[in-house]
Computed example of a mutant assay.
Amino acid sequence: MANPFTFLQEVRSEAAKVTWPTRRETMITTGMVAVMVFFAALFFLSVDQIIRLGVRFILSFGG
Rank of each mutant, 00 (worst) to 15 (best):
P4D: 02
T30I: 04
M36D: 10
A15P: 00
E10C: 02
F43I: 14
V47W: 04
T19N: 05
V18Y: 03
A16T: 11
A41F: 11
V18E: 06
A34E: 03
M27S: 12
D48H: 04
F39A: 11
S46Y: 15
R12V: 03
Q9H: 15
S13G: 01
A2N: 03
V18K: 10
S13I: 09
M32N: 15
V11W: 03
T30E: 05
V11K: 00
G54M: 07
A41E: 05
A16Q: 07
F38K: 04
V37Q: 03
T22H: 11
L59Y: 08
P21G: 02
A41R: 01
P4E: 02
R23E: 14
R23Y: 15
V55I: 09
T19F: 08
T19A: 10
V47D: 09
R24T: 14
V35R: 12
K17C: 02
F5T: 03
S46N: 13
E25M: 11
R12M: 05
E10S: 07
S46P: 00
T26H: 15
I58C: 01
F57Y: 07
F61K: 08
A2F: 01
I51V: 14
A40P: 00
M32S: 12
P4V: 03
R24G: 04
F57E: 10
G54S: 08
T22V: 14
G54P: 00
V11D: 02
S46W: 06
M27P: 00
L45E: 12
T19L: 02
F38G: 08
N3H: 05
S60Q: 06
F61E: 05
A41P: 01
T30G: 01
R12S: 15
F7P: 00
P21A: 06
F7E: 06
E25T: 11
K17Q: 13
M32Q: 13
G63Y: 04
I50M: 12
M27K: 03
T6P: 00
F7R: 05
L8M: 12
S13R: 06
L8S: 13
L8N: 09
R56Q: 15
V47F: 07
K17H: 02
G62L: 04
R23D: 14
I51K: 04
L42T: 10
V55R: 04
G63K: 07
E14H: 07
R23F: 03
E25Y: 10
A2L: 12
I50T: 04
V47E: 08
K17W: 00
F7W: 13
L45Q: 07
G63R: 13
A15W: 05
A41M: 11
G63M: 11
L59D: 09
I51R: 02
M36T: 15
W20R: 06
M27V: 11
I50S: 08
A34F: 06
P4A: 04
T19V: 13
I51E: 09
L8R: 12
I50L: 12
V47L: 14
P4F: 03
G62N: 02
F39Y: 09
F7L: 08
R23W: 08
G54W: 03
V35L: 14
L8K: 09
M32E: 14
L59G: 03
V37A: 14
E14T: 13
T19C: 05
L53W: 07
W20H: 06
L53F: 05
K17I: 02
L8Y: 08
